[in-house]
Simulated scan of single mutants.
Amino acid sequence: MPREYRATGINLKGMPLGENDRLLTILTKEHGLIKAVAAGARKHRSAMAGRSGLFVVNDLQIGIGRSMDRIKNAEMLQSFVGLGKTLARLTAAQYLSELALMQALSAQPQEELFLLLVEHLTRIQNAENHHVLAHLVHGTYHLLAIAGFAPQVYSCCINQSAVIPNRENPKWKAGFSIVGGGVINLENPPLSDGNPNGDRAYQLAEIGSEAMQNRISHYLTARELLAIQELTQADLTDNILESHVTDWLAVERLLRAYAQYHFDRPIQSSALIDNCFFNI
């Protein structure tokens, strides 16, 4: 039985261990989520000090121990030093890493999750200051997507009718149901079982009913819905990137609530979101 293994991984958490060591939580492509000791990482001028930092990608040689695995060698492949230059970038990176940790599995390959996280951390690091929030929200949506939780944003989660934002009408809104898993079309509400003929007045009355209202957890303006619909794309267009920060904050809060519901735990890093981005 092999006593060691190799992996490419990114450090997502670290904590002191003993006097000089550090215990790392690492997302690897080949073995999923692992914990390993970086011996001597807290010693002055230790070669492991930089390689054991957060958001550092290493080529690792890891020895299997009785109680804990130990890093025998680490070669740095990528370092996201730019993430620490502003509180907004660091908060966004911690936010995405939390989401990755919530869904990462141990003892099986997690290449798709690894590559997706590294890609979105790269975008956040390289983004202009006023685009960081948009890239955070984009990364959040895609992490939800590979977890199998992506919300339905183009069609109504109740009756599957197309939901098309009307930017010409400042009062236009769509609903969103966290429990239902996506947007709700308020212009074409679902038929009631007690109204098979589809009387329009009756349908509108149904929208105001307690049953329907209980399904709606959020309301979206046309601009907010347009932004959330664009999150499904691999890249954000320049036009969407320039959406107002208040629109992105609204979408972030919605996806935060949605993620916390489906993962059944809070996103601790989200506490700083408003402070980081509200005045940008």
Rank of each mutant, 00 (worst) to 15 (best):
C156I: 00
G194M: 11
Q108E: 15
D274A: 14
H244S: 13
A49S: 10
P190F: 12
G40K: 01
Q213W: 04
A211K: 04
A127S: 12
D247R: 03
A250D: 04
F263Y: 10
G198C: 06
T28C: 11
Q94N: 09
E128K: 15
L12Y: 04
G175S: 02
N214Q: 14
L225K: 02
L87S: 05
Y202A: 15
I64V: 15
I273F: 03
Y219N: 12
G194P: 05
L117A: 05
A49C: 08
A234F: 03
A134F: 03
K35F: 06
W248C: 02
P189Y: 11
A145M: 10
R6I: 08
Q103I: 09
L226R: 09
P109D: 13
S97C: 14
E187K: 15
N188A: 14
R6V: 11
E19P: 07
D21R: 08
P189H: 09
E4H: 15
V153S: 03
A257H: 11
P16K: 15
P189V: 09
Y219V: 08
G50F: 08
L144W: 00
V37R: 06
L220Y: 02
G82M: 05
K13F: 05
I240N: 05
L12K: 07
R22G: 01
I240L: 13
P196H: 11
S106I: 03
Y5V: 15
Q268K: 13
V137F: 00
H120L: 02
S217T: 07
L17W: 09
L255V: 01
T246I: 10
Q203I: 05
E168F: 13
I178L: 05
L12E: 08
E128I: 13
D235F: 10
Y141K: 05
A222L: 08
N214M: 11
P16S: 08
